[in-house]
Design a protein around this nucleic acid. Structure first.
Lengths: 333, 333
DNA sequence: TTGAAAGCGGTACCAT
DNA sequence: ATGGTACCGCTTTCAA
């Protein structure tokens, strides 16, 4: 007994079984009117019996659209990207759009992968450090940039970096810190560069000597621990993200340095771990970033008129805990 | 001047420009042989000039495959799923397969969404508590189950739950704990049920009275804090995951309870935060789970012969820190 | 080596 | 209200 039934049913088979044309089947399964209720029932019954599901490829070809869009990101390590993508997926789903993901991290053929992805979707959201502007420019479909420097004519959604970094510096200055180190590679991502710029601006404005820049090779715990070796006691270490900062915390403990007395440390992202490590950091609206990108992309795909490129910078928020300096009675958690 | 150039080029236009048939274009862009080097060059030049990229829909329809597969998961909150998906994507990419994601959390039409997804891919990986076995059974394509109870005839990849949970209990017993509470909803996911079963088995074997079951409505920090209200001092609280445990830790601190003296707490997942909270927990090979699923799915898609269903349980590892009880000199981090 | 043409599985226009 | 049919863009025989 062969399992013939396993092969997918086509619209032709449904039409035959229902005794109608394929056009009628197509209508019955989509348009409300233009088909007798009686006919529709017959068609639906046949479709059910055959377990018919319209072929996505056939549809896409005929409709000239994929009903899907993609998001390109560097990596998925740490909760940051995951949260962004979740916000993205949820919003895209609301528009009836499937989501394809592409992590460029650790890939040598990122450009090719993005081009290939571009053939499967109606639009693309491109995050941070993934592919060059050139690749993006030659993409022939709607694009939204996320956490990335703007490109003329392309929508861009970002989180506040420089300004909040300045606030962070001011807070540290308030603690009496005068020696600063920035940990992380500003060339590693636009976000990090923004944060670094903000730190420099804040120090300059206060007339304090510029921060030492200690580039890291990555943005994870290990990179932080490694980089911490070069740190001088009595320094305020502003880290590009929480994981680096947590690495520094670990290294400091091993080295017997007290935080914040011997070393002040701050992060960025407000991961769950930051709360338990007592790490002063900056919170970003991650889901909202993803949701906004998805919304804008959908608009680009749907709209006919080529509206002017939009840009938005979502606010971020300083979260003060104990790693940045001794605070008065208030308990920060 | 209309931007005609923006419309996508088709194989016909390339053929015309190169002065050959579409068949030749198709060959030139794929097969190595069967085409003169000279012809190929001409075709590639034309393709380049027109910025031609084969239509994915056209291809899929002709080839009868999508070169894509999907993964269905409950949610993306917390690093757990993100890690699994990252491992999955990386491996799938190695097979030249794109990845579509679908989060069923907070969706009322999960079944329909999964069915729709099934039309866009060559195979599907389905995680934990997302859709019913019935839906999976009626799917007419290769499926791999991840962190989910096996279904006859379907490949399943899971992480060790019960056994490590027993080890965890034994460790707690070693600390002298005799009153246990399990925090989390065993009905909420197969993983959690496995952990609960392991705890019960461990206690039963030791002749200790069964653990109190305190179901939570979710698996996040808030749920943990909320549930903590019902906890009695002097109890060992085994939580279904780290976030719940961290919530308990927070609540304990607020209530002035010392951990582990007044309350022993354990989690599951070994999130980054667990390390900083000193939380005893269990580490899972998250990326490896995803990678294995992707590998198996690819095999199902590629292989012709319907091999017997495979099952694998990946090992997990107890990570002892200070929340479970007072340890001797060793410092656990 | 190359071309003509038959699908692949739908959608939608044009008749009837 | 329904059917016939021309696409949608590509792959792959089958001939030449």
């Amino acid at each position: 007994m062969a399992m013939k039934a396993l092969s997918k049913a086509t619209i032709y088979q449904v039409a035959q079984l229902a005794g109608v044309s394929i056009a009628t089947v197509s209508r019955a399964m989509r348009d409300s009117d233009l088909v007798t209720e009686q006919t529709r029932e017959r068609v639906l019954a046949a479709a059910k019996q055959l377990r018919f599901t319209p072929s996505r490829a056939g549809r896409s070809l005929a409709e000239g659209r994929h009903a899907a869009n993609g998001i390109v990101f560097p990596d998925l390590v740490g909760p940051y990207y995951a949260e962004v993508i979740l916000g993205y997926e949820a919003t895209a789903a609301g528009f009836g759009s499937s989501v394809l993901i592409l992590a460029t991290g650790g890939r040598t053929d990122a450009d090719a992968a993005v081009r290939e992805l571009a053939t499967r979707v109606d639009g693309l959201t491109v995050m941070g450090q993934t592919v060059s502007d050139e690749v993006i420019a030659e993409l022939r479909l709607p694009v939204v940039l996320l956490a990335r420097d703007p490109v003329p004519g392309v929508d861009t959604v970002r989180a506040q970096n420089a300004r909040t970094a300045r606030s962070l510096v001011e807070h540290l200055l308030g603690h009496g810190h005068r020696r600063f180190t920035f940990l992380g590679d500003p060339a590693g991502s636009p976000d990090v560069r923004g944060r670094y710029d903000g730190v420099r601006a804040g120090l300059k404005r206060a007339g304090v000597e510029p921060a030492d820049l200690v580039p890291t090779k990555g943005f994870d715990l290990e990179a932080g621990k490694e980089a911490a070796k070069a740190l001088q006691p009595g320094t305020a270490v502003v880290c590009a993200n929480d994981e680096l900062a947590l690495g520094v915390l670990l290294a400091a403990e091993e080295a017997g340095l007290r935080v914040p007395q011997d070393l002040a440390v701050t992060g960025w992202d407000d991961l769950l771990a930051a709360r338990f490590a007592g790490l002063t950091t900056v919170r970003q609206p991650m889901r909202e970033l993803g949701a906004t990108a998805a919304r804008w992309l959908n608009r680009r795909i749907t709209d006919d008129m080529p509206a002017a490129a939009r840009r938005r910078v979502l606010a971020t928020q300083l979260v003060v805990r104990r790693s940045c300096g001794i605070h008065s009675p208030e308990v920060h958690r």
